[in-house]
């Protein structure tokens, strides 16, 4: 555990060295959030209520999503693992006396912790300053949101770890990353809340892991969770996906390191 805390701290410190990148992502998240919110406000102007969502709900979800981009890395990267598999640096990671999945998870949690302070909070503040957001008064619901965000980080890591691990078999994960870059924002409910999709499409998207990144935390925040058990049901859904993805990641890691070739001389 001490090891993982130390790796976590290195991950946190490492990302804190990218100051300009952090600042520019806050600007990007804020601007995109505002544009996205204005588009949705226009939509809700025509129909004030869509599948139970109000304009305020939709804008709240938009800013929650923008605030979560950094911490859950909805678009895919960053996880250096993919590049390290490609150029063979992964050999050095395999030569550490620490479990491979845990090494990368601890490092990514460090990155997420930094993103929480440096990106999530400021981006949400931008939304609060510019728009009317639907925020709960119930502290219990905020606590549930905190748990949901933590689980979203785990799901986000689980997905990105698998994208990167594909490199052991594919040699080059740029194709996987391109698909992930599209799937993440659409399937998670970041670009458009899933309630605005046609019902059959939304029903499918709700079964996929990406929904755990934005849609489920947003519904927990808005108190609108459609899953049985309310907020608890939403958290359970996220927890199951996190466990499945991490277990799959661990199993594939064992397989990759047994059968597969580390690149480079």
């Amino acid at each position: 555990m001490r090891v993982l805390l130390a790796v976590f701290a290195c991950g946190l410190r490492r990302y804190s060295t990218y100051r300009v990148a952090t600042l520019s992502s806050i600007v990007v998240n804020g601007v995109f959030g505002a544009v996205n919110a204005m588009v949705l406000l226009a939509v809700f102007d025509a129909r004030p209520r869509i599948n139970g969502y109000t304009a305020e709900d939709a804008v709240t979800q938009v800013f929650l999503a923008q605030s979560l981009i950094g911490i859950t890395a909805i678009f895919g990267p960053p996880l250096d693992l993919g590049g390290r598999i490609r150029d063979g640096q992964v050999a050095m990671d395999l030569l550490r006396p620490v479990g491979f999945v845990r090494w990368w998870l601890a490092q990514d949690l460090g990155r997420a912790a930094f993103a929480l302070l440096s990106r999530t909070a400021p981006t949400f503040a931008v939304g609060l300053a510019l728009f009317d957001l639907a925020l709960p008064a119930d502290p219990l619901r905020w606590a549930a949101l905190a748990a949901a965000v933590a689980l979203a980080v785990l799901v986000g890591f689980g997905l990105r770890y698998l994208y990167a691990l594909a490199g052991f078999w594919l040699m080059d994960t740029r194709g996987v990353n391109a698909v992930a870059w599209l799937a993440g924002p659409f399937c998670s409910g970041m670009v458009l809340p899933l309630v605005l999709f046609p019902d059959p499409v939304a029903a499918v998207l709700r079964t996929l892991p990406w929904a755990a990144l934005v849609q489920v935390p947003a519904e927990i925040l808005l108190g609108r969770t459609v899953l049985p058990g309310g907020a608890a049901g939403g958290l359970a859904y996220q927890a199951v996906w996190a466990a499945l993805l991490l277990a799959l990641g661990a199993a594939l890691t064992a397989r990759a390191t047994r059968r597969v070739v580390v690149q480079g001389g």
Partner: peptide, 26 residues
């Protein structure tokens, strides 16, 4: 293990930090 063309050190952090981490790793 030292591979001349690779590194275990953390690229963005001071050398001291990577060396401090090995205490926990090992």
């Amino acid at each position: 293990v030292v591979f001349g063309q690779r590194t275990t050190l953390w690229w963005d952090l001071p050398l001291r930090d990577s060396l401090a981490l090995t205490r926990h790793l090992y």
